[in-house]
Amino acid sequence: MEDFFIGVDIGSLTAKVVLVDAQGKALGWAVARSGYSGRDVAQRLTREILAEKGVKEEQIKATVATGYGRVTYPAEREVSEITCQAKGSAHFFPGARTVIDIGGQDSKVIKVLPGGKVIDFAMNDKCAAGTGRFLEVMAGALEVSLEEVGALALKAEEHKSISSFCTVFAESEVISHASAGALKPDILAGVCESVAARVSALVERVGLESEVVFTGGVAKNVGVTKALSEQIGYPLLIPENPQITAALGAALLAWGMGKN
């Protein structure tokens, strides 16, 4: 009977599960809102993938959990999302030396060695500026959905800058731009640039080396991607499913445990 391995990433907004086989090849993945109990959601996702791939629960030799919900998840090991993110990113892009990840609650910049070992990392400080949460608040203030933000920002003609670093101040700045008649795309371009500026400061802190991989839910936002790439002066490599890299990294770590 073949062995399988699971990686679970329970983030503040979404839960992701990845299944890999005995050769370390990803067979399938699933994503859902983590909601009130990320653990229940992740367990449901796991059952669904297993059913879909015809894998029995006893064939799962190891599970590694990461993300905010990792602590309470019944797994063989829990590993921080930084280690997992680096591992997963290096899997997609073996030449990756810098990994930028912007998630719901945190943004991180990770310096990695070939094979995905972490040598240094920097994360946002306590405030939410430069995170997915910041984008969500600003999108809310402008009554657009989070998914629309990037595409709208690309349509901007005159960028409205957001200077405040505090999320609460920035929200009032967004509102006052809006009440002064500024167009939504123009304001959103400023919002994306503000997120990018915070993250480029973190990039500077660890020192940039190419190739640069961009992951996390926010990597799907074309507005932030464009602004960030311009600010750091490098192209960004984005996996097809940038949300699942940490879960994949976790699954690969589980696979590594199984091998030994």
């Binding site: 670093f165 700045e173 006052s176």
Partner: peptide, 9 residues
């Protein structure tokens, strides 16, 4: 630092 100034408030 202009980033700590909230014009409206």
């Amino acid at each position: 630092d202009p980033r700590a100034y909230a014009e409206e408030s």
